[in-house]
Simulated assay, not measured.
Amino acid sequence: MSVQSSSPVLAPTQLIVIRHGETAWNRERRLQGQLDVPLNSHGEAQAAALGMALQAEPLDAIYSSDLSRALQTARALAAGRPLAVRTEPGLRERHFGEFQGLTQVEVSERYPEGFAAWQARVPDHAPAGGERLVDFYARVVDITLSLARRHLGGRIALVAHGGVLDCLYRAAHGMSLDAPRKHELRNAGINRLHSDGHRLTVAQWGDVAHLDARGLDEVDQRHVR
Rank of each mutant, 00 (worst) to 15 (best):
S2N: 08
S2V: 15
V3D: 03
S6F: 15
S6G: 02
V9R: 10
A11Q: 12
P12H: 06
P12A: 14
P12F: 10
Q14R: 15
V17D: 15
R19A: 14
H20K: 08
E22G: 05
E28Q: 10
E28N: 13
R29C: 09
G33R: 14
L35H: 09
P38Y: 04
H42L: 12
E44N: 06
A48C: 14
A49Y: 05
G51A: 08
Q55G: 11
A56I: 08
A56R: 10
A56T: 13
A56E: 08
A56Y: 10
E57P: 01
E57C: 03
P58K: 00
Y63R: 00
S64V: 04
S64C: 10
S64I: 05
L71M: 03
R75V: 03
R75G: 04
L77H: 06
A78D: 03
G80C: 04
G80Q: 08
G80H: 06
A84V: 11
R86C: 12
T87F: 08
T87N: 14
E88M: 11
L91P: 06
R94C: 12
F99W: 15
Q100H: 00
G101E: 03
L102Q: 01
V105H: 13
S108G: 08
R110E: 11
Y111W: 03
Y111G: 02
A116T: 05
A116M: 07
A117V: 15
Q119V: 10
D124S: 05
A126D: 09
G129W: 07
G129E: 06
G130Y: 11
R132Q: 06
L133C: 09
V141W: 15
V141M: 09
V141R: 13
I143Q: 15
S146D: 11
S146Q: 14
L147D: 01
R149V: 13
H151R: 02
L158S: 01
V159Q: 00
V159T: 00
A160K: 00
G162C: 01
C167E: 10
Y169P: 02
Y169C: 03
R170V: 00
A172M: 09
G174R: 11
A179F: 07
A179V: 13
P180D: 07
R181H: 09
K182D: 09
R186W: 12
G189F: 10
R192D: 12
H194R: 11
S195K: 01
G197I: 02
H198T: 15
H198A: 05
R199W: 06
L200H: 01
T201F: 14
A203D: 09
A203K: 02
G206F: 14
G206N: 14
D207E: 13
V208G: 11
H210Q: 13
L211E: 05
D212C: 05
G215I: 02
G215F: 04
L216C: 09
E218P: 10
E218D: 13
H223L: 03
R225N: 10
